[in-house]
Simulated assay, not measured.
Amino acid sequence: MRQEPAPLTRHLRVREHRGHTVLELRGEIDVLGAQEVSPHLDAVTGRPRADVVVDLTPVEFFDCAGLRLLYRARRRVLARGGELRLVCADGMVLRILRVTGLAELLTVAPTLEEALRAPGARTAPGLP
Rank of each mutant, 00 (worst) to 15 (best):
R2P: 15
R2K: 15
Q3D: 13
P5Y: 15
A6H: 10
P7T: 10
T9K: 10
R15M: 13
H17R: 14
G27R: 09
E28W: 02
I29L: 07
I29K: 02
D30L: 07
V31M: 14
G33W: 07
A34Y: 05
E36L: 12
V37L: 02
V37E: 05
P39A: 15
G46H: 10
P48R: 01
D51T: 08
V52N: 05
V53K: 07
V53S: 06
P58N: 02
P58R: 01
F62I: 01
F62K: 07
D63I: 01
C64E: 12
G66T: 08
R68N: 15
A73T: 00
A73V: 02
R75P: 01
R76Q: 09
V77F: 02
V77D: 00
L78A: 01
G82Y: 04
G82T: 03
L84S: 00
V87G: 02
V87D: 06
A89H: 11
D90S: 11
M92F: 15
V93L: 06
V93H: 03
V93T: 15
R95L: 09
L97I: 03
V99P: 13
E104T: 13
L105T: 11
L106C: 04
V108D: 03
V108C: 01
A109F: 06
P110N: 14
T111M: 12
A118G: 09
G120K: 05
R122D: 08
P125G: 09
L127V: 12
P128C: 10
